[in-house]
């Protein structure tokens, strides 16, 4: 683990600690809690996409597995949320292995379609298996999480907890990247043939990372269920999986901090737009919320057109060129643009 990552995590912790006082309104904490869930999933997805070069448009399915495991086991069987979450993680990991073994042989668009197909199947099952999942009517009455009898019943507590999980997840991910396994993974992304000739066991490593990213997604799903206290198949559809990929790509594929940046940006963008619309109406411009979709798409397009390596690298680079800041770019992504 590099010193820069330590500094980054340190600063992130300080910002998280100060955030509730900074924003001064529980509503923004609520938005940031959802942001944390997305950050967690995107960290896992970035490990998979950025470091092994495997695309997955199916991570919504793993989120669903986590969320439904938590919801079903706590409401119908009365298990403790932590055991349920553990079961969700286990189930997601097993699913990842089962799906991963045949899927990870595929490449490019075929892999994309296979993961997309898997996500749709999970979504269809969550809609159709009414007896288990509650179908489109969903499951309500999910209990809150408790830590040593300390209920997560306010937005501030939930905020600290979910971002705490993100920091731990981030720490583990960054550690992994700079370990021997991580270097092997980057070699896979560079060239599978070269990596395997150097003794990297590609097939096993890919599955391992898929399992890890599935676990991240599953935990974020469980946290979602225990925060919203109601789930239905809606939030876990294919479009959410596509959105997650978009977050990672917008932030920058080859850097875990990029994934976090992308997740934060795209999670907060709708709120900024609603703020913008209120502002415009406030100064007397007739603005309809219908335009939000247009603006959202345009911002996404502009980022992809003008910041080729993603928002994170792009911003770092432009800041660097402005201030003459001399430092090495994080990761080795700039050399590895494909």
């Amino acid at each position: 683990m590099k010193i820069k990552d330590y500094i980054g995590i340190g600063i992130l912790i300080i910002v998280i600690a100060a955030m509730p006082d900074l924003v001064g309104n529980d509503y923004y904490l609520g938005v940031l809690i959802f942001t944390a869930f997305n950050c967690l999933t995107c960290t896992g997805l970035c490990l998979l996409m950025g470091y092994t070069g495997q695309i997955s448009i199916g991570h919504g399915a793993f989120i669903a597995i986590g969320a439904y495991s938590s919801a079903i086991l706590t409401t119908k069987l009365g298990w403790s949320p932590w055991t349920a979450m553990g079961c969700g993680v286990l189930l997601a990991a097993i699913t990842a292995v089962i799906v991963g073994i045949p899927t990870m042989r595929l490449k490019g668009h075929y892999l994309a379609m296979a993961t997309l197909g898997f996500a749709s199947i999970v979504h269809i099952v969550s809609v159709a298996a009414v007896d288990v999942t509650g179908g489109p009517s969903g499951i309500s009455g999910i209990p809150r999480l408790q830590i040593f009898g300390f209920a997560l019943n306010s937005d501030t507590r939930n905020f600290y907890f979910s971002w705490g999980v993100v920091v731990v997840g981030l720490y583990l991910a960054v550690n992994l990247i700079h370990s021997r396994v991580g270097r092997g993974l980057q070699a896979i992304h560079g060239s599978e043939d070269a990596a395997s000739s150097l003794g990297v066991n590609i097939a096993v490593d890919k599955i391992k990372i898929l399992v890890l990213s599935a676990i991240y997604a599953s935990i974020s799903g469980s946290l979602y269920a225990h925060y919203v206290l109601y789930i239905d198949p809606g939030p876990f559809d294919i479009m959410h999986s596509v959105l997650l990929v978009t977050m990672v790509a917008v932030g920058g594929l080859h850097n875990i901090w990029g994934a976090i940046t992308g997740a934060v940006l795209l999670s907060l963008l709708p709120e900024f737009l609603s703020f913008l619309s209120e502002y415009l109406q406030g100064i007397g411009i007739r603005y309809q919320t219908d335009y939000d979709t247009l603006i959202y798409g345009s911002i996404l397009l502009l980022i992809m057109l003008f910041l080729p390596e993603g928002l994170f690298e792009g911003l770092s680079r432009s800041l660097k060129s402005i201030s003459g800041f001399r430092g090495k770019l994080a990761g080795r992504s700039s050399e590895r643009a494909d």
């Binding site: 695309i55 490019g108 596509v242 990929v245 978009t246 790509a249 917008v250 594929l253 309809q288 219908d290 335009y291 939000d292 979709t293 247009l294 959202y296 798409g297 345009s298 996404l300 397009l301 992809m304 057109l305 080729p308 643009a337 494909d338």
Partner: peptide, 28 residues
Amino acid sequence: NPVKHPTVLRLIIITIAVSIIIKGAAMC
């Protein structure tokens, strides 16, 4: 066309962005 160093994923995300814009325009 304007994309100077196209990568597949970047172009795909661009098409996603365009699809969102077209959808928004069609809605309006």
